[in-house]
Design a binder for these strands. Structure first.
Length: 262
DNA sequence: AACGCGTGGGT
DNA sequence: TACCCAAGCGT
């Protein structure tokens, strides 16, 4: 849930989610559409689908347990380098560098001496993180580095005035030079497919069961774009075609099966 | 390797 | 107000 989403926004929904589905088996037993529905407005709903798929895999291949090594975790859908390392380290104590956006920024500043890391994670950053990771208290190192980046060494307004390591920060020693690397990709929003997909999915989340195609036409006027987005949602597995001309969140009895109800 | 993918709060 | 950014991932 916290992939690309601030933890403060995730926390309440996570509580709700864990009360509903305390174990991988509980989530795996639910229709995938329920996962998408209860993802709410967290964003990137494909994460909900992948988390559900990961739960199914944990039931099928790991006896319903969350696997305990970064290697096994990495094989799960929706679990990449960061998430595998974070779960392995924080849940199971594995000694592995956790490289998230916060740690990247902290190490870029404190050690490398630049304001921001490059847009994409480099081999040099992986090597640096591995080199810095202590042999003792590595879990504490990972957790505290992340937290330090999240609450003090922030992107927009770092609290350098209260920084406990100001005098060893390479970026400060260098006079806090401005970032001079390639610009990060901006994410267009107005009028994009991403926005239209969000609108379509919001309607399907809010309503129970199948929604007639006509009701979806109202969320966006541009027919070509609207239908393209609907198609892409179906292709992603986020939406099912129900009967002739209705749509629903995936996995319910009637969805994709016109033979039902005989 | 660059791109597409949601949403909302902070500056 | 318009960006900017957020415990990234899959293709």
């Amino acid at each position: 849930m916290s992939q690309q989403t601030p933890v403060t926004r995730v926390a309440p929904l996570w509580q709700e989610w864990m009360a509903r589905w305390p174990t991988p088996a509980d989530l795996a037993a639910a229709p995938a559409g329920d996962a998408v529905r209860h993802w709410g407005r967290l964003g990137y709903p494909r994460r909900a689908l992948r988390l559900h798929a990961a739960a199914v895999e944990m039931v099928e291949r790991h006896d319903g347990d969350v696997p305990s090594t970064s290697e096994e975790l990495l094989a799960l859908p929706g679990v990449g380098e960061y998430t595998a390392a974070a779960v392995a380290a924080f849940a199971f104590g594995e000694r592995i560098p956790v490289i998230d956006t916060n740690i990247r920024r902290v190490e870029a500043r404190a050690v490398t001496g630049v304001q921001f890391p490059r847009p994409s994670l480099s081999a040099a950053e992986r090597a640096l993180a591995a080199e810095l990771l202590p042999h003792e208290d590595h879990v504490l190192w990972n957790a505290s580095s992340m937290e330090f980046g999240a609450v003090m060494c922030t992107a927009k307004a770092p609290a350098c005035g209260e920084c406990p390591v100001l005098d060893l920060c390479a970026w400060q020693q260098a006079g806090a030079p401005a970032y001079d690397g390639p610009a990060r990709r901006g994410q267009a929003w107005a009028g994009t497919d991403r926005m239209v997909r969000g609108k379509l999915l919001a309607v399907l989340r809010e309503r129970d069961g199948a929604v007639p195609h006509d009701d979806l036409r109202q969320v966006w006027d541009d027919e070509v774009q609207r239908e393209r987005c609907l198609d892409s949602l179906v292709a992603d597995g986020l939406v099912d075609l129900v009967g002739d001309d209705s749509f629903a969140l995936p996995g319910h009895a009637l969805a994709g099966d016109v033979r039902c109800g005989w």
